[in-house]
Design a protein around this nucleic acid. Structure first.
Lengths: 215, 215
DNA sequence: TGGAAACAGATTATCGATAATCGATAATCA
DNA sequence: TGATTATCGATTATCGATAATCTGTTTCCA
C-alpha cells in the first residue's frame, strides 16, 4: 500500500525507518533524551506500528536508544565514562589493526588513503561536518577492513556509530582544519615501516582527538 | 489471554521466546541450517507472530540466525574461519583484561575464582556439559568484568555466545576432566604477579582450547 | 489529614488478519 | 523445443485494533 514516499534508500519500510532515525540520531538532530513514541513515528512515516517497532528494536540492540519495558524508548545519552571506555577498547583494537596490516600495505593502499584525505580536505572546504566525520571513519576503518577478520570488522562498525555520535554531538568545528594534515602525518609514520612507532602514533592520535572533544 | 505457560524466566513473552530459542541454539538443539518459521514458532508457544518476530530480530542482530528478506530465518552456521577470527579478537582483549586486572586481584578474588573451579569439578562429576561451559565462561568473564569498562564487557557478552555455541557444537567430551586443573594452573601464574607471564598463559590456554575443538 | 484504592491518560505489548514477496511449477506460444 | 509468462503454495511484511501496563491524580474514608 502506502509506498508514496520520498524516503532515502533501503529495501523494507522498517529498514528505511531504521536508517532515517539512525542518521538523525548520529547527526544529533534527535538529541539524547528525546522520546521515541511508536505511534508518533508511525504517523510521521505514514505506516503502521510494526515496522517502527522493528526499527526501534535494532537501534536498541545497537545502543542508540534505551528501552524501558512498557515505558518506551529514549535516545540514549553518552556519558564521558562511556566515551573513555570506547576509546580504551578502540586503542587496543586499532593498535593491533595498524600493527598487523602495516607490513602488507602497498603503493595502491597509500594512494587510497591519500584519496580519503583529499576528500576530507574538500569536505572541510565546504564545511560538511558530517562528511568530514565519515571520511575520518573511512580512514581508520581502512585498517580494520584489512585485518581479514569479520569479528574485528563488526566490532569496528559497532564502535564507529558510537564514536560518530560522540564526535557529531561534541563537535565545535575547531579541529577540522588540522585533520587532513594530521592523517597525512600518520601515513608518513606508516611508510617508515616501524610497526611500534605506527601503533604509537595512532594511539597518540586517538588520545589527542578524544581529549580535544571531551574538554 | 494465553499466559498458561510453563516457560523459563523472562518478563515479556518476546523475551521468553528469545531466551528459549537462544538457549536451544547455543545447546545445539537447533543445529545450524534449521529454518525458523514465524508461524510455526508462534504456534508452538501459543502466541501471535509479533513477539516471535521481535525475538528473531534480536537473534539476528546477535548473529545467532541469518535473515534473508522476504525469505525467512535460518540458524546460522559457524565456519572455522569465524571461530579463528573470534579467537584472535578474544586473545587481544582477554590478554588486555588479564594484564590490567591482575595487579588488583585480592584474596577474595582468588577465592571466587577457586569457587568457580570447584563448581566446575562438580559439573564434570554429573556430566553437565552445558554447566561446565557456563562455568568456563564465568571464569574468563571474571576478568572482563573487572576491567570497569562497559564496552569491553559488552564485547565479551557478544563473544561469549559465539564461543559457547562453537564449544557446545564441537564438544566431544574429551577435555572436561582436565578443565578444572587447567584453570587452577592459570590462577597459580596469576599469583606470581608477573603480568606478561599471566597474559601469555591465558593466550596459550585459549590456543590449546581452540585447537582441541577444531581438530 | 494521610494514605490506600480507584480512575484516567498515555503508550507499549500483543493479537489476528491482510497484502506483498519469493521460488517452483505449470501453461502458453513463437 | 525453448523461452517466457501465469499460477500456486509457503512465508514474510505490514496493517489496524485490542489488551496490558505504567504514571500521576483524584477520591474516599478512617
Amino acid at each position: 500500500m502506502s509506498n508514496s514516499s520520498y524516503f532515502p534508500l533501503g529495501n523494507s519500510i522498517s529498514e528505511q525507518i531504521y536508517l532515517t532515525l539512525k542518521r538523525e540520531i548520529i547527526a544529533g538532530e534527535l538529541p539524547p533524551g528525546t522520546r521515541l513514541i511508536v505511534l508518533d513515528i508511525a504517523g510521521k512515516f505514514q505506516v503502521s506500528q510494526a515496522p517502527v517497532r522493528e526499527a526501534l528494536e535494532r537501534m536498541k540492540q545497537e545502543g542508540l536508544i534505551n528501552g524501558i519495558p512498557n515505558k518506551g524508548s529514549v535516545v540514549s545519552n553518552i556519558t564521558s565514562k562511556e566515551i573513555r571506555d570506547i576509546f580504551v577498547l578502540r586503542e587496543i583494537i586499532e593498535g593491533y589493526a595498524v600493527r598487523t596490516t602495516m607490513p602488507t600495505l602497498l603503493e595502491d593502499d597509500y594512494e587510497q588513503l591519500e584519496m580519503i584525505i583529499r576528500s576530507m580536505e574538500e569536505a572541510v572546504g565546504r564545511n560538511d561536518t558530517l562528511g568530514i566525520l565519515e571520511l575520518d571513519m573511512d580512514f581508520h576503518g581502512f585498517f580494520y577492513k584489512r585485518c581479514d577478520n569479520q569479528a574485528i570488522l563488526e566490532l569496528w562498525n559497532h564502535m564507529r556509530t558510537k564514536v560518530m555520535r560522540f564526535m557529531a554531538i561534541s563537535n565545535r568545528h575547531h579541529t577540522t582544519d588540522l585533520l587532513a594534515e594530521w592523517h597525512r602525518r600518520l601515513i608518513t609514520v606508516l611508510q617508515t615501516g616501524d610497526g611500534d612507532a605506527a601503533e604509537e602514533a595512532f594511539i597518540e592520535h586517538m588520545h589527542a582527538y578524544k581529549f580535544i572533544h571531551m574538554d
